[in-house]
């Protein structure tokens, strides 16, 4: 598995979209710090950009990559290789190369400009989101044979997690605002890795104080170690479950 992954990685790190992605992240991160000075404000800007961009690029790129590599996958299938190791090396290859783009474009400049705990959390969230959305993209691509429909599904997933979900939560909060729903909202955010990532980072900044009562409840949860670990575990589950499903599906798939 690692042999194929190695070749896929060496192919992907020369891919101009990934290079552009890393370069854009680098530029944006430095830009936010230059424009807004040091500290939390710049972090918030980088956070908002990361939460939009990372899932989008990851999900689109991974889906296209799977469909484009279909014939190559067929060639690999004709070799004495197990199906699991083929799909596994594709996942690993995408994860490492997109992860490297994050480390180079986001992690390093963040740490150099703002060497605090929050920078580490933000980089970690971006890496986790990459893993999650590669998994979701593979799930869609393995499931849907047609490239155009697969792309549509993948884009819908992005829109859902970044826009629609928040809209639904807002709607719910508005309608049930007379009830003590802070705890419920906390649990609902577990259903969306993007929101969970946002709160994980926000709670490390002082912006948490502006969020009123629910902010206080969130802060209580996420500033404790067990809260962070619990949300990390939930993020990992988000990464693991779609991948596990796509591997299973790939095993019984007709290529």
């Amino acid at each position: 598995m690692f042999k194929i992954a190695k070749f896929i990685i060496s192919d992907l790190i020369k891919n101009w979209i990934i290079l552009l992605y890393a370069f854009f992240l680098l530029l944006a991160t430095i830009g936010f710090f230059l424009l807004q000075g040091q500290g939390d404000k710049a972090i918030l800007g980088v956070l908002n950009l990361t939460l939009m961009l990372v899932p989008m690029i990851t999900v689109i790129f991974s889906t296209i990559y799977y469909y484009n590599m279909y014939e190559f996958m067929v060639l690999l299938m004709a070799q004495p290789l197990k199906r699991g190791s083929i799909i596994g090396s594709f996942y690993l290859g995408l994860l490492v190369s997109l992860g490297l783009a994050i480390v180079a474009g986001l992690g390093l400049p963040l740490w150099l400009m703002h060497p605090h705990w929050v920078s580490l959390v933000l980089s970690g969230v971006a890496l986790l989101l990459s893993g999650i959305f590669i998994g979701l993209a593979l799930l869609v691509a393995v499931w849907v044979r047609d490239k155009a429909r697969g792309m549509g599904f993948a884009l819908f997933l992005w829109v859902y997690f970044v826009l629609i979900f928040d809209g639904l939560v807002l709607l719910m909060m508005y309608n049930f605002s007379d009830y003590p729903i802070e705890k419920v909202v906390l649990y609902i955010t577990f259903l969306n890795p993007v929101d969970l990532g946002r709160i994980m980072v926000l709670m490390q900044t002082e912006a948490a104080a502006l969020m009123g009562y629910s902010g206080a409840i969130f802060q209580q949860f996420f500033s404790e170690w067990w809260g962070l670990i619990a949300s990390l575990l939930i993020m990992l589950a988000w990464a693991f479950i779609p991948v596990a499903f796509s591997f299973r599906m790939f095993r019984d798939k007709d290529l």
Binding site: F7, S10, D11, N15, N68, E71, F72, V74
Partner: peptide
């Protein structure tokens, strides 16, 4: 195979 396509780089 009938059609071949390989990693681009």
């Amino acid at each position: 195979p009938q059609m071949s396509r390989f990693p681009a780089n």
